[in-house]
């Protein structure tokens, strides 16, 4: 099989596109960064790619709400294209702002009558924060998390608190193993407190996948932990070859091997 091609889709205000493309390349893919306007001009463009990634940043300034305007651009113009992309058995990844876009665009979780079944709202802390978190995976369904049990990554966001529309929605997602990435830490009464759960997410959710496990969104930044010197404590530890986050990109590339 030829080297899988990755489309890293940026919008005005996207700012993690370069390092995300770099992470895919390091994992063995061939990555290309394109402005969403190119996709609007040529909706057939994704057909040539196997993986689509919406990276982190502040698309359209995160004005109104994080990822909201980009999500609407997708709803209005790219829904068909991207639904086809998913149906073709390809992979979609949303990191941080990309996760916010995926969940608000309906690409990750199909809308119910009242709208999207879940959202990412303001952190309980009320502010943007950059900090490292420990994470634990749940279930086997997510393609991107295969073979990963635990990992450490940084989060850097203001609007990352996962909230489901109601208790049934949350239970449903859980039973289908879609709540596939959770914040890890000390549990007090079953709950993980701040800052280990950095934003107050329900069920400590850090990332979710769709029912196929091929569409995945997460708040932490795997592209910020691919190098031996990315981890905040690398000077305290024996040298390692690469960071935990690289495996997520490798899994995506390996899926097409």
């Amino acid at each position: 099989m030829a080297t899988p091609r990755v489309l890293v889709l940026r919008a005005p205000g996207t700012n993690c596109d370069q390092e995300t493309a770099f992470a895919f390349e390091r994992a063995g893919g061939r990555a290309e960064v394109a402005h969403v306007n190119r996709l609007l001009e040529n909706p057939q463009m994704p057909a040539e790619f196997q993986i689509l990634c919406i990276p982190g940043g502040f698309s359209f300034g995160d004005d109104i709400a994080a990822g909201k305007i980009f999500a609407n651009v997708i709803r209005h113009h790219l829904n068909e294209t991207l639904t086809e992309f998913k149906a073709a058995g390809k992979l979609v990844l949303g990191i941080c702002n990309g996760f916010q876009v995926l969940i608000k665009s309906g690409l990750l979780l199909a809308d119910v009558d009242a709208g999207p079944p879940a959202t990412l709202m303001w952190n309980d802390s009320g502010k943007y924060e950059d900090r490292w978190v420990r994470l634990q995976t749940e279930g086997e369904s997510c393609v991107f998390l295969r073979g990963i049990d635990r990992l450490e990554l940084p989060v850097a966001h203001a609007e990352g608190k996962f909230v489901a529309r109601d208790a049934d929605t949350l239970t449903g997602l859980e039973s289908r193993q879609q709540l596939c990435l959770r914040y890890d830490g000390h549990r007090i009464g079953g709950q993980i407190g701040y800052p280990e759960n950095p934003n107050g997410s329900q069920a400590d959710v850090a990332g979710i996948c769709d029912e196929t496990g091929r569409v995945f969104g997460l708040m932490p930044h795997p592209e910020r932990n691919i190098d031996a010197t990315h981890h905040p404590q690398w000077t305290r530890r024996p040298a390692c070859e690469h960071g935990d986050g690289l495996q997520i990109f490798r899994n995506a590339i390996a899926y097409f091997a």
Partner: peptide
């Protein structure tokens, strides 16, 4: 409150140590 890791080149962060 500042993103000190975007662009993916952070090697020594402003806060360091066993508990970062």
């Amino acid at each position: 409150q500042y993103d000190h890791e975007v662009q993916g080149g952070s090697a020594i962060k402003p806060l360091v140590g066993a508990a970062n």
